[in-house]
Design a protein around this nucleic acid. Structure first.
Length: 429
RNA sequence: GCCCCUGUCGUCUAGCUUGGUCUAGGACAUCGCCCUUUCAAGGCGGCAACACGGGUUCAAAUCCCGUCGGGGGCGCCA
């Protein structure tokens, strides 16, 4: 009977913003928790600014995050005649007037509109604060508030969860419901996400679209988890939650009524946790994607080789993109080099000499396994009365260009004898 | 300017509804130690908050008022 029906109503005039993604996520959680329906409505009344490519990407991003919808999306651009009919209806009731071709709704002064917000509790507004509202513009298109009410009623939406920036729209919409003889749904206004500096989250804070995070090597479950955590918590100390867990634990009364700042550090931490947990074979295609995006040629490399590489590095990266910076030495000879590290570990003749001796000994080695390599290294250290780090650091920089990364002997084994010796010997030249 | 929402560690938050169990808990970040060939991971520990001022009360982070601060809105944008 009283099935919960919620909707997400994007406007295809730009990429999916993180804030919108969060709105979608919470609506979706609300619907799924209640066993209700999650609907999509496309607010494409602005025919000039709406673009197909934005719409396609919004659909794609939602699905990527695991947000699926139940019925065919409703397109406002196809319902102009309905809006007009309704406007005529309001006009006939004497609740509106015309100004040129525009239909304008009369706001009755001196009334107090009270709404019982699911997140904020009671909010009251005096209608003296509200100006008469355009329903249909001179060009025949409906205004946002008018179309919104008609469509939410048409879709039988029971709960509207949207951003705080809509609070001032709500009393206007309630008046429209009233004039149309409709019962308003329940409203819940959730606080907006702010940038780290407390201002509205915008481009200058880095990424603001889901797309940017996708491309930047974030996992959908990490982004969704983070966004859900921004403004909601299950009440206990759990932070890493699967979508399924979030669905079962979600309760709108646990939602915060305070604006929250976006913290990329915590997102990265979560992302790292999820990358670590993912199976190697799941991460592999994503890594391949990142490598080719970075312009690295992986055509000559086997999946087995790349899998072993992923195994070595997936526990130490926060984003998939970081993999490229850390492991390029396995893909190309033209890898990036940490110049400071190089100076530090390969600056002295002594270290270069040690490196050469190590290389000579490795030359003899047929079984180029990390165990054997380490054995040779340890023996050498003992024999020459050196510290292991005197050999290890110079070698690491010589063959990988980095001062950090996976265990040296494992790096050497995977890279193979030929490459290792070539790079070790290349240092002196 | 007017209206609305809002104020617990640097950040996200638990606690606030039903005042005492809060010398305020967790997480990220940060710092230190352990582990260790580096970086991560892991373990241990440190730093760090109830915006301020008045009430109410035996007792307030929790209730009330004010101040200040932050955000949003005031479009024939959505």
């Amino acid at each position: 009977m009283n099935t919960v029906r919620v909707r997400f109503a994007p406007s295809p005039t730009g990429f999916l913003h993180l804030g919108s993604a969060r709105t979608a996520l919470f609506n979706w959680l609300y619907a799924r928790h209640a066993g209700g329906k999650f609907l999509l409505r496309i607010e494409d009344t602005d025919k000039v600014r709406s673009e197909k490519k934005f719409l396609d990407e919004i659909f794609d991003d939602l699905q990527w995050m695991g947000v699926n919808w139940d019925e065919e999306p409703l397109y406002q651009s196809q319902r102009f005649n309905v809006y007009r009919e309704k406007a005529e209806e309001v006009l006939a009731k004497g609740r509106a007037y015309k100004e040129g071709d525009a239909f304008i709704f009369k706001i009755e002064k001196g009334r107090t509109i009270e709404l019982d917000d699911m997140i904020h509790g009671s909010i009251t507004v005096n209608t003296d604060e509200i100006k008469d509202q355009v329903m249909i513009k001179s060009d025949g298109s409906p205004t946002y508030n008018f179309a919104c009410v008609i469509d939410d009623a048409y879709l039988e939406v029971t709960h509207i969860l949207r951003g705080d920036d809509h609070i001032s729209n709500t009393p206007k919409q309630i008046l429209f419901y009233e004039a149309l003889g409709l019962t308003p749904p329940k409203f819940g206004h959730m606080p907006l996400i702010l940038g780290p500096d407390g201002a509205k989250l915008s481009k200058r804070h880095g990424g603001v679209s889901v797309e940017e995070y996708r491309n930047g090597g974030f996992l959908p479950e990490a982004l969704a988890n983070y966004l859900i955590l921004l403004g909601w918590s299950p009440g206990d100390d759990r932070e890493i939650l699967s979508m399924d867990e979030a669905v079962s634990l979600f309760d709108i009364s646990d939602m915060s009524d305070v604006q929250a700042k976006f913290d990329i550090q915590k997102l990265k931490w979560l992302n790292g946790e999820y990358i670590m947990k993912r199976k190697t074979e799941e991460v592999l295609p994503l890594i391949k994607d990142q490598l080719s995006k970075a312009g690295l040629d992986i055509a000559g490399l086997t999946d087995d080789y790349l899998s072993r590489l992923v195994d070595l590095y997936k526990i130490r990266i926060k984003t998939l993109r970081e993999f490229v910076d850390l492991a390029d030495c396995f893909i190309t000879d033209d890898f990036t080099v940490d110049e400071d590290g190089k100076r530090k570990h390969l600056g002295s003749e002594e270290n270069k000499a040690n490196l050469k001796i190590f290389a000579d000994r490795l030359e003899e080695l047929d079984d180029f396994s990390h165990e054997k390599i380490e054995e040779i290294c340890r023996d050498l250290v003992e024999e020459k009365n050196l510290k292991a780090s005197n050999i290890i650091h110079p070698t690491r920089v010589a063959i990988s260009g980095k001062t950090r990364g996976a265990g040296l002997f494992e790096i050497m084994e995977l890279l193979g004898k030929e490459k290792v010796l070539e790079r070790m010997r290349g240092v002196g030249r």
